[in-house]
Simulated scan of single mutants.
Amino acid sequence: MKVLGILGAHKKDGFTGQYLAAIAKGLPANIDYELLYLAEYTIKPDTGQPNPVLDQLEKKLQESDIWIMATPTYWGTLSGLMKNFLDCMRPRMVRMTKAADTLPAQFKDKHYLSLTTCFQSSLENFFVGITDDTFKTIDRALTGAGLIKVTEIVGTGTWGTKQPDPAKLALCEHWGAKLATKQKKDDNTVKRYIQLFCMIAVMALITMGLQQLIFGVFANGKFWITYATFVIIFYVLLASILHFFTFLRHRRR
């Protein structure tokens, strides 16, 4: 197994780089690791002419089983280095249909871990979600290419500090060790079914509780009211929760 750390930061040894190094430190000795520091490459898009830099980067991506996407959050999104890398690699990561839909290409079923840092405190980021767009952009690009997400790590409160958070460094090392045991294919199917069952059970309980409170559920002559309100409340709750967990929820602390 090979892990590729892709660092899109201006400083190789900055906070983002140090957290990435901690993940690499946690990898077992038998795991091959390579650091790809984007600032060392002049990355330009394909224009129909030979592009040896993208060819080299593409080969590194092909040879790696897991990518670690490490970028600081600038102006509420990922760094220009990382964005340029994803933009230029797009034609090699996905296939485009005539309807302009993107389909996974050569990197399908690889795995990735997202890592970002920001100036804001953990508390502020928890409520405001400064780093959400960074994770969303990475997710949009890599899931579109068919990669499977492992987890997210965010290092907050980097402004005015000289050393990274020891607890966060330990977390990074933990995930480095855990990456080595990651299956090549998505093995979360059972977990997702359990999560879905729990969500439905909770929503059904809330729905029936609201019906009991508002209408006196199952009272004579109120079957259709009970049925209609159950469907509406259940639908709204399910749609809201699925939207949150699918599109909105990202690691903030």
Score class of each variant (00 low, 15 high):
G146W: 01
A177L: 06
K162W: 15
G146C: 03
T143N: 08
Q106A: 08
F119W: 08
I130F: 14
T102I: 01
I138C: 12
E124D: 13
G144L: 06
Q120N: 14
T143L: 14
T134S: 11
T137Q: 07
S121C: 07
K178M: 09
T117D: 00
G160K: 13
T161H: 07
I153D: 02
F107G: 05
G155A: 05
S122F: 08
D132I: 04
T158S: 00
A105H: 02
Q120L: 13
N125Y: 03
A180I: 07
S114R: 07
T131R: 02
L171D: 05
V150W: 14
G146F: 02
V150P: 11
L123G: 07
H111I: 09
G129E: 00
A141N: 10
K98N: 13
P104M: 07
D132C: 10
I153H: 08
P166Q: 05
L147F: 14
K108W: 03
A100N: 11
G160N: 11
H174M: 13
C172Y: 11
F126M: 11
F107E: 02
I153Q: 05
N125C: 02
A167P: 10
K168P: 04
E173C: 15
T102E: 02
K108G: 04
F135T: 03
K149H: 10
P104R: 05
D132N: 13
S114G: 10
E124W: 15
G129P: 04
L113Q: 03
A177I: 03
I130A: 09
L142M: 11
K149M: 06
A99L: 12
A170Q: 12
G129I: 06
A100G: 00
G157D: 11
A177T: 07
A167N: 15
T134Y: 04
L147Y: 14
G176S: 08
T137C: 02
G155W: 00
F119A: 13
S122T: 04
Q106Y: 09
K184G: 14
L142Y: 03
E152P: 04
K108Y: 04
A180E: 08
H174K: 15
C118Q: 07
T158W: 00
F127A: 09
W175P: 10
T181F: 08
I130K: 11
A180K: 06
P164D: 05
T181W: 07
S114Y: 12
P104D: 02
K178Y: 12
L113N: 12
E124Y: 15
E152V: 05
S122P: 12
I138F: 10
N125G: 09
K149L: 04
D165N: 13
G155D: 01
G155S: 01
L115Q: 01
G160E: 04
P166F: 02
D139F: 01
K149V: 04
F127M: 08
L169A: 04
N125P: 06
P164M: 10
I130C: 06
V154N: 00
P104K: 03
D132E: 00
K184H: 11
I130S: 01
P166G: 08
